[in-house]
Structures are given as structure tokens and as C-alpha cells.
């Protein structure tokens, strides 16, 4: 881990963070998979109560960056992360940080809906249970209900909480996964192409949900769909070949990008 040696730079960073109210900040983040370098010195912040979309062609490093934010890269053998990543100004790769606690604060929703092959109730209750968030059954019931409400799934499943989560439709499964992530009261939610396995109607439902969730959470979403990025996000970051090309307000990115590569990508010239 490259600790920031330059005190001045650190000070500047903190200052900037305070100005724009950053939740998470990545400074010079690089990722290596064994010999291969997947990410090159990325500097990117995640703002409070904002949806940040990460776009770019396949293999550009956007998912890799996303997985750095809750240290899911730890699970890949030979993966190495350098640079500084902070959550509320605290280094998340610090040896003192319990990765389990970090992941409770930075939740994640995956590309393919991956409910546990257990009941709907158990799917949502699992997180609160291992983190000891509920002191009684009633409290747990409450968390489950609230989370399913937030994920907009409650009315559809309230009569069949004991049925298997894998029996739901694809879109419902993905919302169940969102409810599961919400249930541990995270501060940031990471979404890795959450709609790529869903049909348009289910996608619309999830996008609506992302919109609602912004009120309480910071959201980072990786997407292949330019339209989706434009629809759901306020900030957009464009990745290419492991580099951050540019990061700006979504409106500006899609109307007047400053980098030629962004323009080419948005126009569909590559990717």
C-alpha cells in the first residue's frame, strides 16, 4: 500500500473532499492481477447521495475499480491493489480495517441476480443476522420488511416470504438482492451491471429503484448501457484500457464530453 507521502497532497485532497462532500475517494489506484496491470493510477471520488455511473468498453477496468471499493478483489488470488482508497476519509486498505465491517458499510449488487437458495426472508435476514443488527425476532422482521419495502418488492412477496428466493423472476431476484444489500444499512451501494441479465420492464423497475435509493445512499453503478447511465446517474466516469478517461456531470458527459475517446464511445464508434 502506497501511503500518501506527500502531506500537502493529502491536505489538498481532504480539502477538496470537504468541498464537494465526497463519500469515497480513490487516489492513484492501480490493480494488478499477477503480472498483468488492470488499472492505472485512477483518481475518482464517489459523492454523497449521488449515483455515479462507470462506463467504458469491456475490459476497461470499471468493474475492477468497483470491486476495489469494497475489497472484493481480495477474493481473487494474486490480485494486488496500490494507491489510496478512503471511506469517510479513512483508508479502507488499512490493516486495522476489518474487511467484513467495510463490506457491511459498502454493499454490493452483482451482475447476475444471485439470491441464496433459501427463503426470501432468509435472504434478507442473513446480513442483519451475521452483523447482529437485530436483537429480537420482531426487530429482524421489521428490518426484513423495511428492506423489501425499500427495494419495492414487499407488495409482491409479502405473502410468500418463506418461499425460495430462486423461484422469483429475474427482475424480482435482482430487487431481492438489492433488498439484501440494503438490509445491513450500508452507506454506499455498488452495482455491477445490475440490469444486464434483465428484460426491459424489469430494468425499468430497477432503474426507478436506484433513483429512489439515491435519497439515502451513495450509489456506484457499472453499466454497459449509455442510456441507462444517462437515465440514472448524476455523475459519469469513463474508463478505457484501465485508465480513467474523464469524470464529469452526466449531462455534460453525454452532450459535450471533453475527451475524444468518450465522444467516440458514446457515439458507438467502439466498444
Amino acid at each position: 500500500m502506497n501511503m500518501l507521502s506527500d502531506a500537502a497532497a493529502e491536505k489538498a485532497l481532504v480539502k477538496k473532499m470537504n468541498e464537494v462532500n465526497y463519500k469515497m475517494v480513490g487516489k492513484d489506484v492501480s490493480v494488478y492481477y499477477g503480472e498483468k496491470r488492470a488499472l492505472f493510477d485512477v483518481n475518482l471520488g464517489v459523492r454523497n447521495n449521488t449515483v455515479t455511473a462507470l462506463i467504458g468498453p469491456s475490459g476497461c477496468g470499471k468493474s475492477t475499480f468497483l470491486r476495489c471499493l469494497n475489497r472484493m478483489n481480495d477474493t481473487i488470488q494474486g490480485a494486488k491493489v496500490t494507491g489510496l482508497l478512503t471511506l469517510d476519509s479513512k483508508d479502507i486498505y488499512d490493516p486495522d480495517i476489518d474487511v467484513v465491517e467495510l463490506r457491511a458499510r459498502v454493499g454490493m449488487v452483482f451482475q447476475k441476480p444471485n439470491p441464496f437458495p433459501k427463503s426470501i426472508y432468509e435472504n434478507v435476514a442473513y446480513g442483519p443476522r451475521i452483523h447482529g443488527l437485530a436483537r429480537s425476532k420482531a426487530e429482524l422482521d421489521q428490518i426484513v420488511e423495511a428492506s423489501l419495502q425499500k427495494a419495492g418488492l414487499w407488495s409482491e412477496v409479502k405473502d410468500r416470504l418463506q418461499e425460495s428466493g430462486t423461484g422469483l423472476s429475474g427482475g424480482q431476484q435482482q430487487r431481492l438482492c438489492i433488498a439484501r444489500a440494503v438490509a445491513v444499512s450500508p452507506e454506499v451501494i455498488l452495482m455491477d451491471e445490475p440490469c444486464s441479465a434483465l428484460d426491459p420492464i424489469a430494468t425499468a423497475r430497477v432503474e426507478e429503484l436506484i433513483h429512489e435509493l439515491r435519497a439515502n445512499y451513495s450509489i456506484v453503478i457499472v453499466t454497459h448501457s449509455m442510456q441507462q447511465a444517462a437515465r440514472v446517474s448524476q455523475r459519469t466516469a469513463m474508463f478505457h484500457l484501465g485508465n480513467l478517461v474523464e469524470e464529469d456531470d452526466t449531462d455534460k458527459m453525454f452532450t459535450n464530453p471533453s475527451d475524444q475517446r468518450t465522444q467516440d464511445y458514446i457515439m458507438g464508434r467502439f466498444g
Partner: peptide, 26 residues
Amino acid sequence: PPSIRDAALGVGASKMQAIFHHVVPL
């Protein structure tokens, strides 16, 4: 499938918890 492990890790389960709560029973 690895997605089950990811799902558990994603909500903040430790590796041991992911394995003993989800992978082994399956």
C-alpha cells in the same frame, strides 16, 4: 457457483461465514 460466495461476501460475511453458512450446506 462462485456467485453464492460473492453474494455472502457482498453483504459483509467473512469468508469462513460464507463457506460454512452457504457453500457447505449447498
